Computed example of a mutant assay.
Amino acid sequence: MLGSFDLQSGPTLSQKLANMNWGLIVLISLVAFIGIAALYSAGNGNMDPWASRQTVRFIFCMVAMIIVALIDQRFWYNMSYLIYAAGFVMLIFVEFMGQIGMGAQRWINLGFMQIQPSELMKLALVMALARYFNGARSEDLRRLTFLIPPALLILAPVGLVLLQPNLGTAVMLVVDGAALFFLGGAPIWLFIVGIAAGLAAIPLVWHFYMHDYQKQRVLTFLDPEADPLGSGYHIMQSKIALGSGGIEGKGFLNGSQSHLNFLPEKQTDFIFTLWAEEWGLTGGLVLLGLLLLIFIYCGWISFRCRHVYGRLLAFGLMVNFSLYVFINIAMVMGLIPVVGIPLPLVSYGGTSMLAAMIGFGLIISANIHRDSKLPRN
């Protein structure tokens, strides 16, 4: 398959480095630095146990991101279905032999690290859908038979992720897929039917799929004060910490809620709360501003691509990144139920960091090779 292209006909290494999005890399590094600083604070002024490991992970992932960015876009085009298949196999492996943690079976233990295949599957799904819709004609998009295969590409991993159980990631996969359908040119009636079917399925999901702890999360979201020392404890403490930070914050290493261990999961899901308590509304807006600039930068790259694959790939990965940010921030503010979604580049975690950086590498690759000629399906 690779033989169908002359991969040497693209830009030279010096041209690739010149076209590297260094501004985006600086923004990514700034956000990662904020994450390391927050983890240093979470460790009570110590690099161990979180900040030192996160620093090493970021350096490793930065190298991986640059390597991914330098690889020709035509290579990623050809590998898209194979990468999807590999991610799907890992999800099947998790179902039978995965590592169990916090009541869910989501990880593969490699000895030196644990990986969460569902995180990597988000990237693989975007790549597969971008390839499928590349070169699609308007008459193709009106045929139901043309739209069934990409729908199955979405539903297959969603089903496996729901078995883990991991409702939050399953929803993200659906939204990522819907975004690619929309940009790929799928008819509006399809989204109307999908939304109607999703709303109609809510009672069935509540009664037959959701576990008791998941139902409790929803009930706690609706009324966290009903059980402030039990199921509502996490979100109540998060709100207290956010409010106590005020405009300027309590100062670095001086967050009372986090350092007195009132704030749960301060190194992962609630890392933004820790940051906002110590740096206040000002620090929180600075972090959100940097994340917004990354989002805008990725959108600009998407619209610059001349081939459909790169445009869809960059757009889909941009949507995936923005979903992480929106869900995590909304969760810690009590705007949506608590789910296990980390804040990208900031929360402690190896797989989430690796997935985010590889995603950025693919986006930068789309920009570097935006003029490459790709086949039309």
Score class of each variant (00 low, 15 high):
residue 140 D to I: 00
residue 141 L to D: 03
residue 146 F to A: 11
residue 135 G to W: 01
residue 137 R to E: 15
residue 132 Y to Q: 05
residue 138 S to G: 01
residue 164 Q to P: 00
residue 140 D to L: 02
residue 167 L to I: 06
residue 174 V to T: 12
residue 143 R to E: 01
residue 144 L to F: 10
residue 176 D to N: 14
residue 150 P to K: 09
residue 148 I to H: 12
residue 134 N to C: 09
residue 163 L to K: 15
residue 155 L to F: 13
residue 132 Y to P: 06
residue 164 Q to D: 01
residue 155 L to I: 14
residue 134 N to D: 13
residue 157 P to N: 14
residue 167 L to K: 13
residue 133 F to L: 02
residue 172 M to F: 04
residue 137 R to W: 11
residue 170 A to C: 14
residue 159 G to I: 00
residue 146 F to C: 04
residue 131 R to H: 06
residue 156 A to R: 01
residue 135 G to A: 05
residue 140 D to N: 12
residue 130 A to V: 01
residue 151 A to G: 15
residue 129 L to G: 01
residue 163 L to G: 10
residue 153 L to P: 01
residue 136 A to Q: 04
residue 144 L to W: 13
residue 164 Q to F: 01
residue 137 R to N: 15
residue 173 L to R: 10
residue 140 D to F: 00
residue 168 G to Q: 07
residue 168 G to A: 09
residue 142 R to F: 05
residue 177 G to P: 00
residue 169 T to I: 13
residue 160 L to G: 07
residue 166 N to T: 08
residue 149 P to Y: 00
residue 130 A to L: 05
residue 147 L to Y: 02
residue 131 R to Y: 00
residue 169 T to M: 13
residue 146 F to L: 06
residue 151 A to F: 12
residue 138 S to M: 09
residue 132 Y to R: 10
residue 162 L to N: 06
residue 132 Y to D: 03
residue 170 A to N: 09
residue 156 A to C: 13
residue 168 G to E: 03
residue 154 I to W: 04
residue 153 L to W: 08
residue 159 G to F: 13
residue 165 P to W: 00
residue 146 F to P: 03
residue 148 I to W: 04
residue 131 R to L: 11
residue 173 L to P: 00
residue 172 M to C: 08
residue 169 T to D: 03
residue 167 L to D: 05
residue 169 T to V: 14
residue 177 G to L: 07
residue 145 T to I: 12
residue 175 V to S: 03
residue 133 F to Q: 05
residue 154 I to H: 04
residue 149 P to V: 03
